[in-house]
Design a protein around this nucleic acid. Sequence first.
DNA 1: ACATGCTGTAAGCATCGCTTCACACGCCCC
DNA 2: GGGGCGTGTGAAGCGATGCTTACAGCATGT
Lengths: 316, 316
Amino acid sequence: MLDERRIEMLLAVAEHGSFTRAAAALSFTPSAISQQMGLLERDAGAVLFERSPRGVRITEAGDALLLHAEAIRRHLLDARAEVAGITKARGGRLAFGSFPTATATIAAPAIATFHRRHEEVDLQLLDGEPYESAARLHSRELDLALIFSLDNWPAAMDYEGNLVAREDEIEMLPLFDDPFLLLLPESHRLAAAGEEVKLADLAEERIIGSPVGCAPWGMDLEHICAEAGVELMFQATYRSADFQAQQALVASGLGISLLPRLAASALRADVVIRPLMNAPVRHVALAWPTGAYRSPAVKSMIEVIEAIAGDLRFQA
Amino acid sequence: MLDERRIEMLLAVAEHGSFTRAAAALSFTPSAISQQMGLLERDAGAVLFERSPRGVRITEAGDALLLHAEAIRRHLLDARAEVAGITKARGGRLAFGSFPTATATIAAPAIATFHRRHEEVDLQLLDGEPYESAARLHSRELDLALIFSLDNWPAAMDYEGNLVAREDEIEMLPLFDDPFLLLLPESHRLAAAGEEVKLADLAEERIIGSPVGCAPWGMDLEHICAEAGVELMFQATYRSADFQAQQALVASGLGISLLPRLAASALRADVVIRPLMNAPVRHVALAWPTGAYRSPAVKSMIEVIEAIAGDLRFQA
DNA sequence: ACATGCTGTAAGCATCGCTTCACACGCCCC
DNA sequence: GGGGCGTGTGAAGCGATGCTTACAGCATGT
């Protein structure tokens, strides 16, 4: 029972909620899935699925089995990577995750450096929000990822508040804190150099944020500022997760915006950035699955990124 | 790769250090083992064994695979038990471990009570030293075990100082402390009721302990007493791990002994026991594998034993 | 009432994995 | 030095496993 093939089948069935769709996803016939899942039920001595004319639903017993199937799948992937790492000592595959603003400033130069050092490693970059990367680390789709967390927002929490991985399943190495900066049109009253701007100074301003549910900066900045006792007026109509678009909106005088320093590399000429006192920060970190084997490639990439992050921190 | 069958084969090969002996242990032909391990090596893309005319030695890569194989095996066992527990809700199997002195006073009445309540459960008792039970919990040979630790001696440490399980792999529920009592011949100067005996009063006495390496009381009492600043004279010639034998030696006037209170249920007429001030104690606890599914049978047994242990503590 | 989409069963065929038998190799003892 | 005795390995054969194809049963929705 719980052969490697059955594990894949069980996971596919759980994901798609139907033998037929699982079969399609795995390039099998529905009959094969039905037979294997039937045998699995016989071996386990329990009903694992509630059959219905529109698919199947996992029972409690099936769900218990599913959790172990996922764990075993992780062990199999780890075992393979580990053995490959031991024998080849170098080379192999490195799947690396990053989030958009870090991809430009950290991941890109890191990949360039890493590739120069280890041409033989098959390097793969997968961009995504931190919680997506966290889920992919947990499922071993990624070996290493750049992520960030906010003070009240763990990296493994998606934008609806669900945790995609337990805290002890992801190990993290803090790199630096990335503060939010103020993005202003050049003619703005706060744009003139002078005293540092406080969060409370923005109470009258209209803030252009991200669409709720798209990225945490819009939604979560509201929370952070609310906790700091400041109620910001977020623009309801003009929202965008794209920094270029946000800059355009700001330049047009439709409001001001907060943007992470990492995103402030490519600025338009008609906007200015100003630091903010006690600004909220994104805690940028490197993450990998707890307990997983760290191949030489992973260790090397960690060193490369630590060096780049050190330079960034020094500039700040 | 790492099919359930291959896992058993790999574990057997690692245990016996030979394809042939592993085959004998699993009732296979050596050829079957050789073929499967060959395929495993091909799948893993690495040499897992160093062949020699007297058997095989696991390589580093093989050892890495072995660790994952053990973990997967645990998941499979847990998954089975969990599913069985969910569907049957009651019944199934309960493998219970105990150490000798607790078997008589706790495990026996607990088993009697449990059996009355759950006739349908296939209950199994496996006596052994705490570190043996700890190892069996870790490998899922046991579901639950009575164990004890000393102040400087974890339950999972064998009598040569090796840990058979990491601390976080075994979860423990402390039950009570079992103090060592003084066992004296009836004519002994300390046998008369009077002031409580102190450890220091025994400095002149000849102590009859257990053979070193057999049980912790002999060896570890020396350490405990040495740390308390008392150097006891352990009898070199007369040593036994059997309490009846120890009593006979004591009754014959060859020395005195320390015995756990749990072992003091069946005393000869010509010996007496006396309490000891600041006596060393065995911390008796219930243990089960961390993270494993606790079936209704296990939970019920925990309750039964807690009740019995509560009575024992009350008597003390 | 029919079509659709799902699961489940039966028959056929390829593959997998065991056993048996045979062999090559290193070690030890005579 | 040669013959046991141990080891791991390979080829042939046979049964079991697991896929495909084809078809049946059943609920739903048009």
